[in-house]
């Protein structure tokens, strides 16, 4: 798959001698929803942190559309086209929903315009924020402090914030963790709609059923090692995967 949007080769990350991630190889093709699954401590979040530059990989390469971004600072990686959400929601405590949708937008206008009041100088940014807000059904909550909203909505605000950055690839870290069935279904529908607009999604998830019904392709991690990959039905039938999951839970 040379047309992959994201390509990882031999990515390794160690913490004090412990391999959180070793020799990770994976590809995310454009326009697909790809999932990373694995038991707790398998290295899933480490993988995200390494892709987005929060951690520096000790070895290996991360390429976005053929561009090696491994050593880039995280803000440049985002601007190149990878946006993310966080496992424990990280919204800005002093900002409203509306402000969250403005703050993460790429800088298309000149520097001095960014110093002027948004209402005068950034009509395009406002339009984009309105558009994303409507897409996520957040318009009513526009002026509410984001952190005061219910948990499930905070997750949506975080996704919306990432989407305003106009990414090519969206990384979602356990997007439905702690949600009830209806909320999770709503997020699933949103993801499919996002994919249909041309966005590529890579997500980490615990809930096997959720992933199976959503993803086009899956990678399975255990102890920082890739132990299986394939289409959902292949992964489901793979005895190695069952072992990793069941062996740990029992």
């Amino acid at each position: 798959m040379s047309n992959a949007l994201l390509q990882l080769t031999g990515v390794t990350k160690t913490f004090g001698g412990i391999h959180a991630l070793s020799g990770m190889v994976c590809e995310v093709p454009e326009g697909k929803i790809v999932g990373v699954i694995g038991p707790n401590g398998a290295g899933k979040t480490t993988l995200f942190n390494t892709i987005t530059g929060a951690y520096r990989a000790d070895a290996g390469e991360v390429k976005l559309k053929g561009v090696d971004v491994t050593q880039w600072p995280s803000y440049r990686i985002v601007r190149e086209g990878i946006a993310r959400t966080f496992q424990n929601i990280r919204l800005f405590g002093s900002m409203t929903v509306w402000e969250h949708l403005l703050v993460a937008q790429p800088h298309s206008e000149s520097a001095w315009r960014r110093l002027l009041p948004i209402a005068w100088a950034n009509p395009a940014a406002q339009e984009r924020a309105e558009e994303v807000m409507a897409f996520f059904g957040l318009t009513e909550l526009r002026d509410r402090p984001a952190k005061s909203l219910p948990y499930g909505i905070q997750r949506k605000v975080e996704m919306a914030r990432a989407v305003t950055a106009r990414p090519k690839l969206l990384l979602l870290d356990e997007p439905v963790a702690g949600m009830n069935h209806d909320e999770a279904e709503e997020i699933r529908a949103l993801m499919i709609r996002l994919r249909d607009t041309g966005l590529t999604i890579l997500l980490i998830e615990h809930d096997m059923n959720f992933v199976m019904r959503l993803c086009d392709y899956l990678y399975v991690l255990d102890f920082g090692v890739l132990i299986a990959e394939g289409r959902p039905e292949e992964v489901r039938a793979n005895p190695v995967v069952l072992d990793a999951y069941l062996g740990k839970d029992s």
């Binding site: 600072p73 995280s74 985002v78 946006a83």
Partner: peptide, 11 residues
Amino acid sequence: DDETAAGLIGL
């Protein structure tokens, strides 16, 4: 509010 998150959303 959150410097790490700010960097990770592209600032």
